[in-house]
Amino acid sequence: MRPQLIFALIFAGLIGLSLVTGKIDPYYYTVIIFIGINITMATSLNLINGFTGQFSLGHAGFMGVGAYVSAIASTFLTTHGLGTEVMGGVPVMAIALLVGGLAAALTGLAVGIPSLRLKGDYLAIVTLGFNEIIRVIIQNVDFKIDGISYVGGARGFAVPQLSSFLWVFGIALVAIYFVENLINSTYGRGFLAVRDDEVAAEAMGVHTTRFKVRAFVIGSFFAGIGGGLFAHFIQYITPDNFTFLKSIEIVVMVILGGMGSTYGVILAAILLTIMPEALREFSEYRMIIYSLMLIVLMIARPQGLFGSETFTRFFAKRKAAANKV
């Protein structure tokens, strides 16, 4: 079966599911939405960190750019005639997300071109620093158009509610589809070659800097869209939503899922969103237990939940091993 068909089927399933989301307890609904957003964030970071091997610690920065720019777009549009009443708010949200994603992608390009010449730890530090720069810039921006406050600096920015189950998971599906298609093509093997051996990749004609920048821009684009979904769901964003702690949270998902395994990363995004919530009954011990679980998981499976295996190959191997015994 061609991937298009599988993804179309899943999308149909999502539409069906979206009809019953109104009946879910709001708390669980919130957790489910965060799972969807985290899947988009982790899948897109996996393209940069996992598949291309460039250790970025600034993903929350791009998420922040996307969140704020899309929020500015939607606030402007809803107060200038294209409100939520027009076609259920779909056009506003689509434009806002696209603008947010493009802004994040452009930022990714601007950050990527100079910093992707660096390797390993240096790149991590530069992206981390960039994340903080974005946050500080947002903290100091505040302007009004027609009497309505935009961005709001450290105070925060009120955003119209436009996200929904279908938006969040629809976008997650698109992100997965894009990353998987890209990686599993001949062109996409260039990204993996950059990760595995830059010298050999260059000797085979792969323009390594160009591949790195492209991975960075595509990853940032989806991070920006993820930010847009986030902003339009929680309806009030502050710069503190996008600190480097958020970046690290996403990096942990990528590492735990297995660098370079889309399905492992999805599973890790689900697990790591649910775990802190499920541990709430332990109140003050929550983060200790959470950290301990992470340590145990990393010791037990240092290669990540799935390693670099794909979903089908992972189970095919299990089956083959079971048949042998």
Binding site: L182, Y187, G190, A193
Partner: peptide, 18 residues
């Protein structure tokens, strides 16, 4: 296959949309 990566006609858009 990596050797063909910089030589394909289907680059990002072609690979994404198939």
């Amino acid at each position: 296959r990596v050797s063909y990566a910089p030589r394909t006609n289907n680059k990002i858009i072609g690979s994404l949309l198939r």
